[in-house]
Computed example of a mutant assay.
Amino acid sequence: MLSISEFSEMCHLSPQALRFYHAEGLLVPAEVDERTGYRSYAFEQVERAMLITLLRDTGMSVKLVRQALDEPDRAAALLVRHGDEVRRQRTAQDEAIQAARAVFDAQPEPRLRRVPAMTVVAKLVHGTPRGRDAREWDEAETLIEATLTELVKTVREGGVTTLGRPWRSLAIETQEQDRRVLDGEGPFWMVKVPVVAPEEALVALPAELLVQEQEAYDELSIFMPGRNTMAKYCTVILRLLNAAPLDGEAFVNLARLRHEVHDDGVLTGAPVERRPQ
């Protein structure tokens, strides 16, 4: 029999790791002294220790390692599945690293720009959750993007020419919309696309679409690299609020935030308006 220290040296596993594997039922000592609690291992257990080390080195969880050891015929399939998950995580980590570098390299700061007058066609996005956690936020993102794609398609099929990049904004442009958002009923978002078309083409669009004439205005905007998330959304709002002071009569109207989703990030803007006299 081998003491835990001898077995530890032989298998290159620390005594702490051996105690953990014992507690998890992966590698139970051949003998445990009831009086002292000392663990002893048989030489034949070296092979199981080696297999555990091999599997754990792949990043497998204890649960998967146990399955592979208890059902050797499934080990290959479990390794394939685990390999797929590792590659997925690696891809996600690579994307996260690129997003982090982009944010730190860009140091996003608000910029003042002039938005020209334009005609826009809008559509309410029905069915989005409130975005209270990451799952709801991602679900809302998917629904918003699908509605936006459908809007652009419908407008173009109606003989209306789209101009520039579409965007999304909060659905609080009327008292009724505002009430439904505050009550948690929704819809919470609407999507818009700038267009140019004869009046008759705009009138012929489906009734669910809203045609709006937007006057030119000044906008404070900021570009945040990477995937759109709730944390980035809140960070952008904070930076717009903390932007260089405007003159005493001007303020940033965050209720009219708009978001343009680009391949490499999100441009968020809010109108700079004058306080009523």
Rank of each mutant, 00 (worst) to 15 (best):
P110Y: 05
Q16W: 00
T149L: 04
T154A: 10
H22C: 04
A42D: 15
D84W: 07
M230R: 14
E47S: 11
R180M: 09
H259K: 11
A140G: 06
A255N: 13
D94R: 07
P29Q: 08
A106V: 09
R113P: 01
L205W: 06
G226Y: 09
L26E: 05
V193W: 00
E157F: 02
K123P: 01
A216R: 12
N228Y: 13
R156F: 01
T174E: 07
G83F: 03
D84P: 00
A201H: 07
S169D: 14
V28W: 04
M230K: 12
D218T: 12
R35V: 11
Q212I: 07
E260W: 05
P187H: 06
L151E: 12
D138K: 04
E150W: 04
L163N: 00
E145A: 13
D247H: 07
V195F: 00
V155D: 00
A250I: 01
R56D: 02
H262F: 01
A216H: 10
Q107M: 08
H12Y: 07
R132I: 11
R87N: 11
A49V: 09
P108H: 06
E24L: 04
C11M: 10
V152G: 02
A77G: 07
P187V: 05
L257E: 08
A68I: 03
L210S: 06
T229Y: 09
I97D: 14
T53P: 00
L202T: 07
A244I: 04
L51V: 10
E139D: 14
L240Q: 04
R165V: 07
L170Y: 08
G37E: 08
A207C: 05
S169I: 13
Q175D: 15
E215A: 12
H259A: 14
R39L: 12
A23E: 14
R258M: 08
E136R: 11
R113A: 14
T142M: 06
V121D: 05
M1T: 03
A146L: 05
R39F: 11
V266C: 15
M230C: 11
